[in-house]
């Protein structure tokens, strides 16, 4: 399965959609993003990577093609306000040190990464700035402020290919993430791979299973009408299979984030993507 099923599924979606595009291309504001690429060599069971965008209905897909129509942009705007807002005992805003948010172009593609022997995600970097340099309180991992900020920073890399480092000092974290990906957990006794590797493109009740790619995060979901962090999504998946979720921002989810990011190497960053 794989290629055929996806092609078919998207054909069905397009045939039934009043908002069908001419072709099955992710064309955002006139720029075509890499949303279908060859799988990296470390993936043994998957040949082609598909952005989660391909698995959505025509109406949901359309929301991501125009920045005014994309409801996630409301939160990017909030991120811009936060970026310039002074907070904490040092009287600083993000802007005090990082004059242009555009300078963060490329950062999203390389996270999580190892710093001083620790695996760090973008949320860690934001909170480090807040607590160490601004004298402000850390934001909660998936809070509105945090997702607005990671959304804004991630948005600077939109269109750039995902490219996390998985060798050298990252190897042990990557291997831990891989182990978690294939380990069955919860009352339903399921691993990430059961849905997102073995059965992507297949219906799970009224929904299409995707490959579980994270290149569009934080992602705006129609379900809760806000930006959602990668770890919040992991947590949701784990609850759905009746497992006790790991902690957001914990070592398990960070390792899993690195591994899943590496399963999307080459896909364009879509932040903020729109999903159901």
């Amino acid at each position: 399965m794989g290629m055929k099923a996806i092609t078919f599924v998207s054909a069905l979606v397009f045939a039934s959609s009043a908002y069908a595009q001419d072709s099955n291309q992710l064309n955002v504001e006139g720029e075509i993003y890499a949303s279908t690429v060859a799988a990296p060599s470390h993936m043994e069971n998957v040949d082609t990577l598909y952005s989660g965008w391909h698995f959505r209905s025509g109406e949901t897909q359309a929301l991501q093609l125009d920045d005014f129509d994309n409801p996630g942009m409301v939160f990017i705007d909030q991120g811009i306000d936060l970026f310039g807002k002074v907070d904490g005992s040092e009287g600083k805003s993000c802007e005090s040190c990082h004059e242009n948010v555009e300078d963060f172009a490329g950062l999203r593609t390389a996270l999580p990464r190892v710093e001083n022997g620790e695996l760090v995600a973008m949320e860690d970097l934001v909170n480090e700035c807040r607590t160490e340099r601004m004298g402000a309180d850390a934001w909660k991992w998936s809070s509105t402020n945090m997702t607005a900020m990671t959304g804004l920073i991630g948005f600077q890399s939109r269109g750039m290919p995902m490219s996390v480092k998985i060798d050298g000092d990252a190897t042990k974290f990557w291997e831990k993430g891989k182990e978690l990906y294939y380990t069955r957990v919860g009352q339903l006794d399921m691993a990430c791979s059961n849905c997102h590797e073995d059965n992507y493109g297949v219906m799970i009740r009224a929904d299409h299973l995707s490959q579980g790619q994270i290149n569009g995060f934080p992602t705006y979901r129609l379900k809760n009408a806000k930006l959602n962090s990668v770890h919040a999504r992991f947590k949701g998946c784990m609850s759905n299979i009746r497992a006790t979720p790991f902690k957001e921002g914990g070592n398990e989810f960070k390792a899993l984030e690195l591994y899943i990011a590496s399963r999307g190497q080459g896909l364009a960053v879509e932040t903020p993507s729109v999903r159901n």
Partner: peptide
Amino acid sequence: LTAPEIAENGNTVP
């Protein structure tokens, strides 16, 4: 009146 035959989520139906 144009509306989708199937809405992926009832929260946001164009």
